[in-house]
Design a protein around this nucleic acid. Structure first.
Lengths: 233, 233
DNA sequence: AAACATATATATCAATTACTTAAATTAATT
DNA sequence: AATTAATTTAAGTAATTGATATATATGTTT
């Protein structure tokens, strides 16, 4: 599954150029021509990262950024702002509005790709790294293998994805609805109880691997599930 | 506790200027004069973020960055690289080596602060996001945990919501009716006395956590409940 | 100050709700 | 067709909830 990036720019040449470069680097692209269009496409496709031009018709990149940050579904979405305005207060404004990075035009394709990768590495490690680690749990994403206390853990695909997600944000509690969205996909209707069943299997597999019957997953009643962090509880 | 930032630059003026600006913004600073020195100080002080000049004696910022990324203790450490070299392949090299951001000199203090904040927001969300604090009480909304005097407090969902609400407006007295509306939901009919019962449970849990039998909740006869502020009785 | 009226705190219990798990069913792969 | 995984169902278990009863505290009136 490709990492999808939404690009919003009202200048067709710029848009196509960026799309070309990103695709060459192996990303999937979704193109938007203005702010409103971008918002709609973000809702529909849940891209993994968005690149927004500051100056756009309908809704500016800054306003869109603010909107995205205010909604719980996109609060964590990685955002890069592009702008022809290169003075320092614009840069600050863009970043302080909640963007993760700000690139002044003109920029090289190379820089863009490096910045996209740097941001993904930080915000969605599973999309870039081969290995995720948390205490004694390790996931090798390319090889699709999991070890717990250096023992192999055999998981089904759903359990694997669930664990990957939990490991991207240790300590964070994901609601069943959120997990269904992220693991099963947006708009798929499945019973929430199904999540419980998969969590149960995941736990069973992990407990079996650790001889000690250890279980790194925390249940929060009425809340959801998350990966235990030693600091808390 | 201040967020500590290590700055490494062999140019004393630049170093002092950055330290001054960061401290003005409320950060603690640790200053290093070269790469080796920086590595030592990072090991000793575990800063929350590091800013490394590319060109430094002993060990360049890039080499240091590579070293930090290869060690498990600093694999996740947020890194910003500074450089007088502003051509695109240098930027890419810096970012591809594992830095989170790259700033070309000369840059404004304002941009530096904004980039530091953006990176902290992304890498240590707990430092900025989703934590409610009031004196010795802390709630992490992401992790759904409560601590009082650094001890964990176990709460049921209703008590958790009640406390969250009170902590959103310390000192404000919420009537039972208002609490029922906000926590139980509009239109749900529940006895007002039930609020008393949950408050009692919440208090019990907090008192247990603080060995001193402390209770941060204030009852206002005929009024409701609120979070104590030392200023107001 | 005493007696009364009213409000709040807490313990207890039954009802409810939420979670876990195993087993059965359905769907997808091989 | 056989195997593997995904989903639903259903039953068992555990935790939370809300009402009520009683004790305690507060405020008012005489």
């Amino acid at each position: 599954m490709k990492t999808n990036i939404l690009i919003a720019d009202d200048e067709p040449n710029q848009l196509e150029l960026m799309a070309y470069n990103l695709e060459t680097s192996g990303f999937g692209t979704i193109k938007a021509r203005d702010g409103k269009n971008a918002l709609q496409l973000i809702e529909d496709h849940s891209p993994d990262l968005v690149i927004l031009d500051w100056m756009m018709p309908n809704m500016s990149g800054i306003d869109l950024c603010r909107t995205l940050r205010s909604r719980s579904e996109t609060k964590q979405l990685p955002i890069i702002i592009l702008s022809a305005r290169s003075d320092d207060s614009d840069k600050s404004l863009g970043l302080d509005t909640g963007a993760d990075d700000y690139i002044s035009k003109p920029f090289s394709p190379k820089e863009l790709i490096s910045r996209v990768n740097a941001l993904l590495r930080r915000s969605r490690p599973a999309l870039i790294n081969n290995i995720l680690e948390h205490e004694n749990l390790k996931i090798s994403l390319n090889e699709m293998t999991v070890t717990y206390f250096d023992k192999n853990v055999k998981l089904g695909p759903k359990e694997f994805k669930l664990l990957t997600l939990l490991m991207e944000r240790p300590g964070h509690i994901f609601s069943r609805g959120k997990l269904l969205d992220l693991v099963w996909g947006h708009g798929v209707y499945v019973e929430e109880r199904t999540v419980d069943v998969h969590m149960s299997r995941l736990r069973k597999a992990l407990k079996t691997a650790s001889d000690e019957n250890l279980d790194p997953i925390r249940t929060v009643r009425d809340g959801g599930y998350g990966l235990f962090t030693n600091k808390i509880i």
